[in-house]
């Protein structure tokens, strides 16, 4: 895979990623693992997990880590450039055309349906990934703890991930 192809792939993901970073996770798998086969399923899963540990936007973090894994720092820059290329044009369209339309009931209905779809797909992504990693009581405990800390205790994402993963390492090492 060349840098240009990687750039175009991330441009596509950036243009199709309605619903933000989490919605891009299935697109990363479809494009990079299934279509281009430049990363394995396991590598991609590692990348989207590690990307949450770095401050900054999830989409650009994933682009950097995927680019580095495929090739080099140049691939990483190409991937980031791809995923952010639409942004200035989005700003232009938002200011010129969408702001006056925001009260339009058709647009609101469309967006409401879109949001429902986004939530459904993110849920399905979670369940799909769960199959490959939640395989014993230790990993189950880790996932549940992360869910509990974020959802019920309203911790921030970074703190919830680090705490549950740390306890998970102990539980998993204990099993091995």
């Amino acid at each position: 895979m060349s840098i240009i192809q990687l750039y175009l792939t991330f441009l596509k993901i950036g243009l199709l990623g309605f619903g933000g970073g989490y919605m891009m996770i299935p697109l990363f798998f479809i494009e990079l693992v299934d279509r281009w086969q430049c990363l394995t399923y396991d590598q991609m899963f590692n990348i989207v997990s590690v990307a949450q540990l770095v401050p900054g936007t999830f989409a650009t973090n994933t682009a950097v880590l995927a680019g580095m894994s495929v090739g080099s720092i140049w691939f990483a820059l190409g991937a980031v450039a791809g995923v952010v290329t639409p942004a200035p044009f989005i700003a232009f369209l938002a200011e010129r055309y969408v702001r006056p339309l925001l009260d339009n009931s058709k647009l609101q209905g469309f967006l409401k349906g879109l949001t429902a779809g986004v939530i459904g797909i993110i849920l399905a992504t979670g369940f799909k990934l769960m199959h490959s990693v939640v395989i014993d009581w230790a990993t189950m405990l880790t996932a549940l703890l992360a869910f509990y800390l974020l959802f019920s205790r309203q911790w921030n994402v970074g703190a919830a991930i680090l705490t549950s993963a740390l306890l998970g390492v102990f539980a998993i090492s204990f099993l091995m």
Binding site: Y22, I25, S49, V50, G126, V133, T139, A146, F147, A165
Partner: peptide, 22 residues
């Protein structure tokens, strides 16, 4: 082990985020 734990935690985070936003 750390990567496995991290991935398990991410699954919990993704599901929690989806339900929270929903």
């Amino acid at each position: 082990a750390a990567m496995t734990a991290l991935k398990a935690a991410i699954v919990g985070i993704i599901l929690a985020m989806a339900i929270h936003l929903g």
